[in-house]
Nucleic acid binder design. Structure first.
Length: 359
DNA sequence: AAAGCGTGGGT
DNA sequence: TACCCAAGCTT
């Protein structure tokens, strides 16, 4: 675009944004720490889902020191249900780095921001523009979708290096006067008007600048390579009670899927295929009998990259049993203090509904 | 570079 | 129903 066109583009975009842009909790603050929290929560997560988590989180951890000093379990508990839990762990790690290295203040330059755990290229640019009003384009999925349509860019946005191309492009586009509004405007436009499957071009303030609209090919953009089909895994979820009606729960490993979250013990039914092996294993590991297996209910839980087929089985285990590391007995009330992934919250809900006395 | 990493909502 | 998708980062 020529300079004249760029100015017109920005005028049309920002005028729309000031009239129709969303009013969101994290847009009311100038506290870089709060903006950081919002940006992390918003990664791969929709605005409406984030709002209650954001409000609750800044209330519970109002300062960087409060978050830095909190036990990780409490942070995960506040993140419970939001997904991608490594975000919470990385956020706390990053905040601890900030407290230790930068005197509790968020750095004001991009390379220092990038050095903090959990801050990648998008978040660093978002913070530069939204917290410090520097003209840094924050290239996320919305920006790439909108700009790919405006300029008919057919690079695969699933590839890392494509982001750099959009970064260069948007650097020449972004207004110096209110860079935060530029980024937020394109995000709002992407979320509300220029959507993936529905491009409501009649409501678009910049359709006159849009080459995809001109050619009627909005929905062919952006180009994005497909994802692999999720793998399926089968587990028995073991609801093991001691004589006092307490439940055996355990904390997952510190890395990998649902790291640091709690769960009821799970028995892989893919590794122990025949019934004999499963029984032998569960007896050895839990000193309990789940035979004849009392299957309470079965359900399916979908992750982004795999599917769990789960069957709840109920058994009895002596409370004197030697527990492994990261395992403990917990009453229903105690158990609720631990962060559980949704896949296991379903079990808790089932217990409360069907076994109110926990017997 | 590509895969791993959650969940809820929309079509 | 069964997809697809969302303000990405880490390894």
């Amino acid at each position: 675009m020529k300079e004249q066109q760029i100015q017109q583009f920005n005028h049309d975009l920002l005028d729309w944004f000031h009239r129709k842009g969303r009013r969101l909790p994290w847009r009311k603050t100038d506290n870089p720490y709060y903006i950081w929290i919002s940006e992390v929560m918003l990664q791969q997560t929709q605005v409406n889902t984030v709002i209650p988590y954001y409000n609750q989180f800044i209330k519970k951890f109002p300062t960087p020191e409060a978050l830095a000093d909190a036990p990780e379990q409490e942070v995960l508990k506040s993140w419970e249900g939001l997904g991608y839990y490594s975000r919470a762990r990385n956020l706390q790690k990053g905040v601890r780095e900030m407290v230790a290295t930068y005197n509790s203040e968020l750095p004001k330059n991009k390379s220092d921001l990038l050095s903090l755990t959990g801050i990648g290229p998008y978040t660093a640019s978002a913070l530069m523009s939204m917290a410090y009003h520097e003209p840094e384009p924050a290239i996320d999925g919305n920006l790439m979708r909108v700009l790919s349509r405006i300029f008919l860019i057919d690079d695969d946005i699933a590839k890392q290096k494509t982001r750099k191309k959009f970064e260069k492009l948007a650097s020449d586009l972004i207004v110096q006067t209110e860079p935060a509004s530029f980024n937020q405007a394109l995000m709002d436009l992407g979320a509300m008007v220029c959507r993936p499957k529905i491009a409501d071009c009649s409501q678009c303030p910049i359709s006159s600048h849009c080459r995809a609209y001109e050619e009627g090919v909005q929905l062919e953009y952006p180009v994005k390579s497909g994802k692999a089909k999720p793998r399926m895994l089968h587990y028995a979820v073991l609801l093991l009670l001691d004589e006092q009606g307490r439940f055996l729960v355990e904390q997952r490993p510190d890395s990998g899927l649902l790291a640091g979250m709690w769960q009821f013990p799970m028995l892989s039914l893919d590794e122990y295929e025949d019934e004999q092996q499963q029984q032998a294993y569960s007896r050895e590991r839990f000193q309990c009998s789940v035979e004849p297996p009392e299957a309470a209910f079965s359900y399916t839980h979908h992750f982004s990259h795999l599917i769990w087929k789960l069957t709840l089985r109920i058994g009895r285990t002596p409370s004197q049993m030697k527990l492994r590391k990261r395992q403990c007995w917990a009453t229903m009330n105690e158990l609720k203090r631990f962060p559980f992934p949704v896949s296991h919250q379903k079990v808790i809900r089932w217990i409360e509904k069907n076994r109110p006395l926990h017997t």
